[in-house]
Design a protein around this nucleic acid. Sequence first.
RNA 1: GCCGGAGUGGCGGAACUGGAAGACGCGCCGGUCUCAAAAACCGGUAGUGGAAACACUGUAAGGGUUCGACUCCCUUCUCCGGCACCA
Length: 823
Amino acid sequence: MKKNYPFDKIEPKWQKYWRKSGLFRMAPGSKKPKYYCLMMFPYPSAALHVGHGRNYIIGDVVARYKLMKNFNVLTPMGWDAFGLPAENAAIKNNIHPKESTMRNIATMKRQMYEWGVGYDWDREVTSCLPDYYRWTQWLFLKLYQKGLCYRKKAAVNWCPSCKTVLANEQVIEDKCERCETKIVEKELEQWFFKITDYAERLLDDLRLLKDWPERVKIMQKNWIGKSKGVQINFPVVDSKTTLSCFTTRVDTIYGATYMVMAPEHPGIEKLVKDIVIKNKVYKFTEQIKSQSKIERSSLEIEKKGIFTGRYVINPMTGEQIPLWIANYVLMEYGTGAVMAVPAHDQRDFEFAKKYNLPIKLVIDNAGDAIKIGLMKKAYIEKGIMVNSGEFNNLTNKEGMEKIADYMEANNIGKKTVRYRLKDWLVSRQRYWGAPIPVVYCRSCGIVTVPEDELPVLLPENIDFNPRGESPLKKGKDFLNTTCPECKGQAVREADTMDTFVDSSWYFLRYLTPHNARQAFDSKLVNTWLPVDQYIGGVEHAILHLLYSRFVVKVLCDLGLVGFQEPFESLFTQGMIIKNGAKMSKSKGNVVSPDKLIADYGADTVRLYTLFIGPPEKDAEWNDKGVEGTYRFLSRIWRMIEQIPNKTQIPNSKIQGLKRKTHQTIKKVTEDMEGDFHFNTAISAIMELVNEIYKLQAVNKLIEPEACSLQPEAIREAVEAVVVLLSPFAPHIAEELWQRLGHKGGIFKTNWPEYDPGVLKMEKVTIIVQINGKLRQRLKVASNIGEDALKKEVLEDERIKEWVKDKSVKKMIVIPKKLVNIVV
RNA sequence: GCCGGAGUGGCGGAACUGGAAGACGCGCCGGUCUCAAAAACCGGUAGUGGAAACACUGUAAGGGUUCGACUCCCUUCUCCGGCACCA
C-alpha cells in the first residue's frame, strides 16, 4: 500500500500527546459549563470490529466538538464485564472468566486508543471487580430496604444447554438466544425487583425525555403496556364466592355469554371439587399445564377448552352463563379469568364457534346493521349499543363510561389500570456475576448482609461448570457462613445478579470511581447528571434504559440523587451491515479495524465510518468506500503542502471563496448541534476542498495582472477545512494545524463561527417555472422588487418564446427563489 | 394481527419548513502528465430521443390536494425493527 501521507507517523504521535496532556481529563474545579458525554459501556468480548467502532467514534466526535465549544467535558469509559459469554467461553476453553475478561478489556482498550478515541481513563469502571460490584450489592440492599425486592417461586425459562435461567428477552421463539437450544420451564425460588411499582412513573416521565428518539419512547411505552378497564365481579351460582375478571371493553358486558379461566387459575380446585365431571376437568388442566408457555402460545390457532359444570351470573343481565377453562387465557395477565364476548372479540368468537356457545351482538355498526348469522369474525369497531338494557342507543364509547360508573356505584366492578410490564427477575444461577448479598439462617430466615460487610466476594477458585444448579453452591467456603444477626449457622444465597443490575447505575460511579466509602457522591452526581448526551445501540432501547430509569427513580425516592431521569438526550446509532447481515462474529462477516488502520490510518477509518450514512440508520460497509475517504485526506494533506501563503487568486474569486468558507462553517456547525448528520458535514468540507483546488488550477492559467495577493482568504479557507475536520479526523487535523504555525493543539482552540455578513449575496439565481416546470434561471440583484422581477422575467427571450401565444393567468413570486408563471 | 421506520441513479446516500431531484463519495468513461503504468489533477456520468441546443419521462405502484409534491392526504405493495391469545 502506497502511502500518500505519513499517517503511521503522525497518529501515534498525537495519540500520545492527547494522553500526556490529559485532553480528555475532566477538570473538577473548572468554571466552564459541564457536558457529560456518555457511551454505553461495552461487554468485553474478544475484539472490536468496525461496527462497534461507530458508537465510540460518534461519541468521540461529540466530545471533541464540545471541548472546542469550551465545555468541561466528562467522557468516561468502562466495562460491563460480568455475564454469560465469558463463562461459556471459560467452560469451553478452560480459562477463568476473569482472565479472559481482563485480557479482552486490554485488547479493546488498545483498539479504542488506536482509533484515536479519547476517554478520561482515570475514571474507568469494571463491573466484575469487587470495588465496583460491592456497590451493585449495596444497590440491592437499598432496593431491599425500600421493599422493592422480594423472593417468589416462579416458572422461569430454563436453557438445558447453558443450564441457566433466561430472561424473556433472551428467549427467541422458544429458543435460547445464545445456543438456540429449546427452552424448558422450571420452577425456582427467584429474586425480583418490583419495577411494576414504578410502571406509571416510567410511562409518565417518558414525556420529560424530549431529546429521545420517538421510536425508543414508543417501544418503552408498549413494553409497559398500560391499559385502562374495569375489574368486574361475577357471582358464582350456588356459591358465596365471586369470580373476578378484567376487561377493557366493559361496553360489551351485555354480550358476555360465557366466562373462561386459565388452567392455572387457583380457584379451579374449589369450584369443581363437587362437580361430577371434575376428573375430566383436572385431566384437561393437567394436560394444558404440562405444555410450556411457549408451546401453548405457538399453538396459537388451536383453541381448546372444557366446561367446568358451573355457572356464573352476568351482573348486568342477571343471566347464568357457563364457566369454562381454556388454554387461551393467560394467568399472568389480568386476573386469570375473562368474560367472553364472542360477538366482539375475535378469540372468544373462534372459541364460541368451536364449542357452540351463544353469540350475542351488543354493539352494532351505525351505518350497516350486522346480522349475527352472517358474521365471519368478531365486530371490534366502534358502534351503537344494542341489546344492552338501559344503555341502548348510546355510542359504545359513552356506554363504556356509563356502565363503568354504574358498576362502581353498585359495587359490581371497579375501574382499574393494568400493565403488561412484569417485575424484574434478577437472580441468575450462574457463576460470573455479582453475588446476591443475602444469607439464609436457620433461625432468622432471610437476612441481608450488612453494608459494612460488603462486598460478598465472588470466590475465584470454583468449579463453574454447569451442573444444573448455581456453581456457587459447590464452593463450601463461600456457601457456609454465619448469620449476621444471631451469629448462628447460615448459608449464602448462591445465585448471582443479572448483569442489567450492574449496568443500571454505572453512570453514577464515573464521578467517583475510586471512592471506597460510597457508591457515588450525591452532591457531585447532582451537579453532573442528567447525562447530557447518551449514545448507544438501539438494541438497548427497552431493557437497559428502562432499568436505569427505574433505578434512578428509586435512588431519587431514597433522597440519594436529585433527578428523576438519568439521560436527558439519547442518540441510538444504527448497525453496520456487511453482506446483508449485522456485522457479528457468529455471522463471520466482521471487518477488523486493526488491518484497516495499519493500511489507511485511523483518521480514514473514522471518516469513512462517519461518512457511510446518517448515523441513526443502519449502513452497509463497503471496503472500496474506505479508499475514497483516504484519497480525501491525502488531498487535504497535499493542499496544505502545495498552497503557500503567496498564492494569487483572481479578485473576482475572493468573495466566492469567502462565502463558501462561511457556508461550510455554518453547515458543519448545524450538523454538530442538530441530529449528528456527520455524513453531510463531511460532504460540505469536501466541497470546500474542491473549491480550493479549483482556484489552484485557475491560478496556473490566469493573467498576472488580473490577480492580487490574497493570502488571507486562502488561509481562512484552508484553516476552516482543518478545524472543521478535526472532530472527525483528529490526528491529521492536529498535525496540519501545527504545520500551519499554530501552537497549543487544535482542540484547545475555539470552534469557528460564521459571519452572516459574508453569506449575503448581491446577486441571486431565480428559478423561472412555467406551470411548475423549470424553464429558465436568471441572475438578479438580491434586493430586486417584486414588480421589477416580474418585468425582468417576462422580458427574458426564452420566457417570451414559451409564453408567446398563451396568456399569463397568474405569477407566483417567492423572493430570492423563484417565479412561477401560470399560463 | 397491532405499533414504529423505510423504499430516490450501477452502489452508499443528498434535498432545511411544499419551490432547481440526484449534493458528496464509490464505481464507470474520457482527457492532462508519462516511454509506459500507477498515483495525481481536470472533465463527464438518471433514463429516452437528438450532432447539439433542447425536449420528454423519472423519487416502490395507483389516485388526490396545490401555481408547484421525494416532501402533505388516501389506497396498495415490499423490506426492516418492536410487541403479540394482554381480555
